[in-house]
Amino acid sequence: MPDGAPDLATSVLDVRDLKTVFRTRGGEVHAVNSVSFHLERGELLGVVGESGSGKSVTMMSLIGLLPSPPAENRGGQVLLGGRDLLKVTDDELRAVRGAKIGFIFQDPMTSLNPVFTVGNQIMEPLIRHMGLTKAQARVRAAELLELVGISDAAARIDNYPHQFSGGMRQRVMIAIALSCDPDVLIADEPTTALDVTIQAQILELVKGLRQKLGMAIIWITHDLGVIAGIADRVMVMYGGQVVEQAPVKELFANPQHPYTRALLKTIPSLHGKRAARLQVIEGQPPIMTAAPTACAFRDRCAHRFDRCDRENPLRRPIGASHDVACHWTAGGAHA
């Protein structure tokens, strides 16, 4: 594949105005509301946001992994190498998923098949998409397992998923996603079940692949420490929308959206004084039964004013590649 898409100089992936709705018995759930972002070659984009804010659904929609019904695409474009993934056939999409986009799911137990050995599941895409023979694939699968830090890989390759610990299953998912050297890797909470030393090892591995292969990575996590350590840029989601986006240092130094600020305050520290009680963001997340017509964060925001109830704020640039969707920070009520 030629470097980058011809019409989008350096972007490997460009998502515009993506909208996804679930139709359930209880009515509609507007999980993704006009989400736009792009990803550059070799870049690592961190995605953070409240639980239920639409991080996973956004990523699943853009590679057509949500069953429909109940999921329904209500518009947008997902451009990969000049093609709109929302418009291609199912077969083409499957090929893209196998070879161009690697995906690590949030829930490793449900995404591994319990009746096949771990080895078989790593070998399958190698045989299907990379044209390896069974014997070659087995050797490669063992290498991949070692690469993600599973000792004694040659012996454990014949284990079934339930014989692996939570973190080991997660690493199997990572091995599968990396097996075909994808252009884009989407990692949904890839290291939540991993301890810090193995996490560090995986992060180093991923950084290396990024440099060697120019792989672009989307990394969804709740762990702001991990974000601080590896991301180039960070996108913050709330209520199915992107509310802030900035280079990583800028975001930590100069957070703008009230949600981002609150989020950064909630981290317990490893050093420093131990707080008697942890900070929380008071209030409930929005329930998203309709497309937003007002700011989704307003009920929990200390800076709320009349405009926040009338109008859903759009993202506007406030600095070099830093943008934020907030009436208050846009100067509306600075006083």
Partner: peptide, 24 residues
Amino acid sequence: SAVNEPDPLLARRERIILQGDVPS
């Protein structure tokens, strides 16, 4: 020593990188 500091602006303490793999 391996914990990620949740602030890229803070200096971290010396990280001890363990060599080798965890035995089976």
